[in-house]
Design a protein around this nucleic acid. Sequence first.
DNA 1: CACAGGATCGTT
DNA 2: ACGATCCTGTGT
Length: 212
Amino acid sequence: MPQPARLIPAGFFLRPVDQVAQDLLGRHLRHGPVTLRVTEVEAYGGPEDSASHCRSGRTPRNAPMWEAGGRAYVYFCYGMHHMLNVVTGPAGQAAAVLIRACEPVRGLDLVRRRRGGQEGPVLLTGPGKVAQALALDLGFSGHPLFRRGGLELLEGDPGGMVLRGPRVGIGFAQPADRDLDWRFALADTPWVSQRRTLRQIIASTGYEQSLE
DNA sequence: CACAGGATCGTT
DNA sequence: ACGATCCTGTGT
């Protein structure tokens, strides 16, 4: 009988949000029979980040972002999509990583069913698609990812080369925040959205070190 | 209580 | 390039 995949320890999340964002690439998200490998993410900060949901301080919606890292922050967008974030940093300091794209690891049939019978990267390249494939809703906002049960974050398959570039869909933000290269994606997979805006290349993710 | 807008997606 | 669709934050 195979060993169950290991959870990511809570200490992993208690670091700067852009660092956690890079190290989330290649990790696995599991909800029941569906397991996805993270291929694309974006980092969001607190009140100092005009692109963040915390730009105006604490509200009922963004409350999980102010908790200690390791929980989910899920919100509802454009009246029809749920978005999954991973909260980072110590309690009282708001930050989170938006999961923008994944590739299937397990439960592909169920993912196809939930995504309307589509095939290929169109299944999972986009934050709304990821949440739909994992069957997430607002009830998962605040859910711990470092414990067994419900939605879990697990060790995965390391990626190699990483691409980075500006965040997507934040035209309303201040220019300095729009220019931050806080979007990260694995270079060697087709399961990435909006690849053309990824302009820099990073050698690796520092994946092994982050697990100690 | 009313209203404007949004970290998107799929079609035109 | 555009419309769907409703939660959310803000203001009255």
